[in-house]
Computed example of a mutant assay.
Amino acid sequence: MDTRLLQTVARGTDSGKAMIATATALACVINGDTMTDVLRQATWLILAITVLIIVQVVATAVSVKRLGRG
């Protein structure tokens, strides 16, 4: 097997963002979803992560105050 060909192909696929976008679009086509549904799910994911971060920050601030460090 010629490893030079694999190295050339590996170098050509360094663009991870394009690969992720292509995989997402392909997954939508395979699953019959629309890009709107994917974006809607991504919005909910970002919202959930934001809420979790806010809860963690508030919990840390409350625990620091209770320990008398604040």
Results as ranks from 00 to 15, higher is better:
residue 1 M to Q: 01
residue 2 D to Q: 02
residue 3 T to S: 09
residue 3 T to R: 09
residue 4 R to Q: 10
residue 5 L to K: 04
residue 5 L to D: 03
residue 6 L to Q: 02
residue 6 L to V: 04
residue 7 Q to K: 13
residue 7 Q to N: 10
residue 7 Q to Y: 09
residue 8 T to G: 03
residue 9 V to C: 00
residue 10 A to V: 01
residue 10 A to K: 00
residue 10 A to H: 00
residue 11 R to H: 03
residue 12 G to V: 01
residue 13 T to D: 00
residue 13 T to C: 00
residue 13 T to N: 06
residue 14 D to R: 14
residue 14 D to W: 06
residue 14 D to G: 08
residue 15 S to D: 15
residue 16 G to D: 03
residue 16 G to P: 01
residue 17 K to P: 03
residue 17 K to Q: 11
residue 17 K to L: 10
residue 19 M to L: 14
residue 19 M to Q: 12
residue 20 I to L: 08
residue 20 I to S: 06
residue 22 T to S: 07
residue 22 T to I: 04
residue 22 T to K: 05
residue 23 A to T: 04
residue 24 T to F: 05
residue 24 T to L: 12
residue 25 A to G: 05
residue 26 L to I: 05
residue 26 L to P: 01
residue 26 L to N: 13
residue 27 A to Q: 10
residue 27 A to G: 15
residue 27 A to I: 07
residue 28 C to Q: 06
residue 28 C to G: 05
residue 28 C to I: 05
residue 29 V to W: 13
residue 31 N to H: 12
residue 32 G to A: 05
residue 33 D to N: 14
residue 33 D to T: 15
residue 34 T to K: 01
residue 34 T to I: 01
residue 35 M to Y: 11
residue 35 M to L: 15
residue 36 T to A: 15
residue 37 D to Y: 10
residue 37 D to V: 05
residue 37 D to M: 13
residue 38 V to C: 04
residue 38 V to E: 14
residue 39 L to P: 02
residue 39 L to W: 10
residue 40 R to F: 08
residue 40 R to T: 13
residue 41 Q to S: 14
residue 41 Q to V: 15
residue 43 T to A: 08
residue 43 T to D: 10
residue 44 W to G: 09
residue 45 L to R: 08
residue 45 L to P: 02
residue 45 L to N: 08
residue 48 A to T: 06
residue 48 A to M: 07
residue 48 A to Q: 07
residue 48 A to W: 08
residue 49 I to T: 10
residue 50 T to K: 02
residue 51 V to N: 00
residue 51 V to C: 00
residue 52 L to T: 12
residue 52 L to K: 08
residue 54 I to V: 14
residue 56 Q to C: 11
residue 57 V to L: 11
residue 57 V to G: 04
residue 57 V to S: 06
residue 57 V to F: 08
residue 59 A to F: 03
residue 60 T to K: 13
residue 61 A to K: 02
residue 61 A to G: 03
residue 61 A to C: 03
residue 64 V to A: 12
residue 64 V to L: 12
residue 65 K to P: 03
residue 66 R to S: 07
residue 66 R to A: 13
residue 67 L to N: 06
residue 68 G to P: 00
residue 68 G to D: 02
residue 69 R to E: 07
residue 70 G to Q: 03
residue 70 G to K: 04
